[in-house]
Design a binder for these strands. Structure first.
Lengths: 136, 136
DNA sequence: CTATTGATGCAACTCAGTTGCATGGCCATT
DNA sequence: AATGGCCATGCAACTGAGTTGCATCAATAG
């Protein structure tokens, strides 16, 4: 497990440190997108400085190891980037957890023809609804 | 003009006050989504208290007069709600302005079949690219 | 015109995220 | 294995968005 995490870091030209291994493990094993606060709580040794954690997240995002998830709330969410394929974010209106799900080819939106002069490069889909836990 | 704004407020069960008329005018005449800061700057008489402005925005959003736009940045954006139809948000990667555009029927994404137990109610599409001003 | 309800303004606060700087640890090179 | 450079870490102090409590004032109903 840890060997695999080590490799991931190296492949992305990131120095291997205890903090980074821990943070990466937390993100890689979470099904939902996590906030700075969430991650901090899940670190076994919770003595990681908040600034270090922010900088670690920035470094990871810069190297495309994780990506920042656009959120409705005030604080940022981060999710491990499983693949570079198109994916959607599922936001549960019950528990407010954000799931990062792959988006099948057939479900992708067609690039709309906008007013002349607007050039679309990428797009992402946000789905609202209820996750299994909050199903009514 | 002002008479029209008055009516909009009344139709949404909101008291008509000078602050609200001004804020509504700013939002209704803007092509792009605006932050608290943007709105504050555009108010002719810029003596409106920041707390009042936040509360005004909350009141408007609660009555569906405007809606909060999910943003990548740290601060919230608000846009006048032209219609209740599906619409997309176009985020210019050059100037970072956010345009609120209607989404034609044909361009809407199909609800993807997710893992069992996930129930989708609404969805919104975010388009990244370049606006006419930033076109390369 | 008056009363009531809710809008406004002010002060002080919380919380996310940032910046500067000094120290310590990772890793390449020998 | 030892050395040294460079970057990751931690600490302190700061910025800026957004909130809360409370007193005052203005919009609308009667």
């Amino acid at each position: 497990m840890e060997a695999r995490l080590r490799d991931i870091l190296k492949e992305h030209d990131l120095k291997v440190t205890p903090v980074r291994l821990q943070v990466l493990e937390v993100l890689a094993t979470s099904e939902v997108a996590l906030s700075h606060h969430d991650i901090s709580n899940r670190l076994s040794d919770d003595s990681v400085d908040k600034v270090t954690l922010y900088r670690t997240l920035h470094a990871f995002a810069e190297r495309q190891l994780i990506h920042k998830v656009p959120s409705d709330g005030p604080n940022g969410l981060y999710a491990f980037r499983l693949s570079h394929d198109a994916h959607a974010h599922f936001i549960c209106d019950g528990c407010e957890r954000v799931y990062c799900t792959p988006l099948p080819e057939a479900a992708r939106p067609v690039a709309p023809t906008l007013t002349a002069g607007f050039q679309v490069t990428t797009q992402d889909v946000r789905l609202h609804g209820y996750c299994p836990d909050c199903h009514a």
